[in-house]
Design a binder for these strands. Structure first.
Lengths: 111, 111
DNA sequence: GCCTACATGTAGGTAGCCTACATCTAGGCT
DNA sequence: AGCCTAGATGTAGGCTACCTACATGTAGGC
């Protein structure tokens, strides 16, 4: 997949995947792959900075845990994150609809 | 609309809009707005360089014309442009489906 | 003379995603 | 011991496509 295609949609993906259950970065990457049927392989160099960015602007909060000797930083949505997710969802619907309208072949106003 | 959202989808939009009838830059911008129901307002600083890029890599060809005293550069798809458009279309379908799967709330595999 | 629509184009900035690398633990295998 | 894989987090630096802002010119209405 063209890497640039994800631009501007990462926030929505990350927020959506931890909406119901808080997850740590590594698990988020796996969840993205799983939920997308293998289509989304997002590298760590993308996810970790993005999570920190989202925490910095207040959409996520995080806490450390140790499981089986490994340290995890688990992220969860804040209230503002939840609101942002809904905005992103409706923005995605608009966006996808707009692109779809343009791309759909042979469907132009009768002229 | 978040500007970054368009990243990596401009090619598909531009190629699609001139698929059936060759158009010049200004008309392409209007066509994008029209076909998207006003959702896509792509600035000239995006469209003109993108068209030149697509011509440079062989997906478009162009020719100058003068209409009503104004000079227009009209772009049309090449064979490779047509193939590229089909690739972009199926890439978009995959992409939209992947994002949709992740974003759709409450639709995770039972368990 | 001024404004708007039509029409094309460039220079420079921004930002977000990616590649590549660095670091550490746990555990299996030989 | 030594090696490898999986789990887990993170940074530095680069790329590049898109955007903002500006520059240029014609045609036509007022």
């Amino acid at each position: 997949m063209n890497p640039d295609a994800l631009r501007g949609h990462m926030d929505a993906l990350l927020l959506s995947v931890i909406e119901d259950e808080p997850l740590h970065g590594y698990a988020i990457i796996e969840a993205l792959q799983e939920r997308s049927g293998g289509a989304l392989s997002v590298p760590t160099g993308t996810v970790y900075p993005a999570l920190r960015r989202l925490e910095r602007i207040g959409h996520l909060s995080s806490e450390w845990a140790t499981v089986g000797g490994r340290k995890r930083r688990t992220y969860r949505l804040t209230g503002s994150g939840r609101r942002h997710l809904e905005e992103e969802r409706s923005a995605w619907r608009e966006f996808a609809s707009a692109i779809g309208s343009v791309l759909r072949p042979g469907v132009r106003p009768a002229g």
